[in-house]
Computed example of a mutant assay.
Amino acid sequence: MKYKSLLLLSLLLLTASLPSVAQQNSDITTFVLVRHAEKVDDSADPELSPEGYQRAERLAEMLQNISFDAVYSSDRIRTRETVRKIADQNSVEIVFYEPHETEEEVKRMLNSNTGKTVLVSGHSNTTPFFANELLGREHFADKFDESDYDNLLIITIAGGGESELLHLRY
């Protein structure tokens, strides 16, 4: 319980500061990266499990005060469903991206979203490397464990290219 309270406090402080930071410097781009929630099975394109839908709901509740300008997802049911409610809350369409073309996709997203707040739903074997590309350095040496669904990465990139990472669990 103490851990959840600390996480909630961190998120509240972050969400309270994002709009004022964005107003002060419209060159700051914020990316929120998540791995898809729990899947129902190991088939090629599974739905979320009941636990996965609960996690997606919890994510939407946690991020409800953040105004997202864009929501990206790989073209898989589990990644789309993880962020569908957030896209709906922000009245934006989910845009598909190719998670294995990390360098190209990061360039495209950065060019299209400078000064905006973006949510990206990916996979255990792509999200850490996507984060590394956004950061411009290797922070994650390996993929996330297959059983690890609760990483929430918040990356801010200033106009000069300086980047910061806030790595939370939810």
Rank of each mutant, 00 (worst) to 15 (best):
E61W: 08
K143C: 06
A60R: 05
V34I: 09
E146W: 03
F140P: 11
E93K: 08
G115R: 09
F130E: 01
Q24C: 13
E93A: 13
L6Q: 05
E61Y: 14
L12G: 10
A141D: 11
P50D: 15
Y97C: 02
H36V: 04
D150K: 10
D75A: 09
P46L: 03
S74H: 00
Q54K: 10
E101R: 00
P19F: 09
R108Y: 06
V118D: 03
R169E: 07
A70E: 13
G52D: 08
T102I: 15
Y3D: 04
G159N: 12
S73F: 01
A141T: 10
V83A: 05
L153T: 06
S121F: 01
A131V: 02
I154A: 00
S17Y: 14
I28T: 15
A131L: 01
P50Y: 06
I28C: 13
P99R: 00
H36L: 11
V106L: 03
R137T: 12
F129P: 04
A70Q: 13
E103Y: 06
R137W: 05
D27R: 14
S26R: 14
L18P: 06
N132K: 02
E105A: 02
E105T: 06
K116Q: 13
Y53N: 11
L14K: 00
R55G: 03
L48R: 04
L153Q: 04
A87T: 06
Q54D: 15
E47I: 10
E105F: 02
N125V: 00
Q64N: 11
E146L: 03
A22W: 07
G122F: 00
E101G: 09
D88F: 03
L13P: 05
L134Q: 08
D45K: 10
L135E: 12
S124K: 00
V120K: 02
T126Q: 00
P46A: 12
L110Y: 11
V92Y: 04
Q54E: 15
V21I: 12
Y170H: 04
V71M: 05
H100T: 11
E164I: 14
A22T: 11
E101N: 08
K85C: 04
P99N: 07
P19D: 08
A56Y: 01
E38K: 14
F140Y: 15
H139G: 05
N65S: 09
L168T: 12
T15H: 06
T15V: 10
L48D: 14
E164D: 15
N90L: 05
G160F: 15
F130I: 01
E98H: 04
L12F: 13
H100N: 09
N90V: 05
G159K: 12
H100K: 01
T117W: 07
G115N: 10
I86H: 02
D148G: 03
S10C: 03
Q23S: 12
R78P: 05
E133L: 03
V40W: 06
E103K: 07
N111E: 14
D75Y: 01
L59D: 00
S26E: 08
S74A: 10
V40A: 11
A158F: 11
F130S: 03
R58K: 10
G160R: 15
V95F: 01
P99I: 00
A141P: 05
A158R: 13
E104T: 12
K116H: 14
A37P: 09
S91V: 00
L8G: 09
T114F: 08
A131G: 13
H167K: 07
A158V: 09
E51W: 10
S17C: 14
H123Y: 10
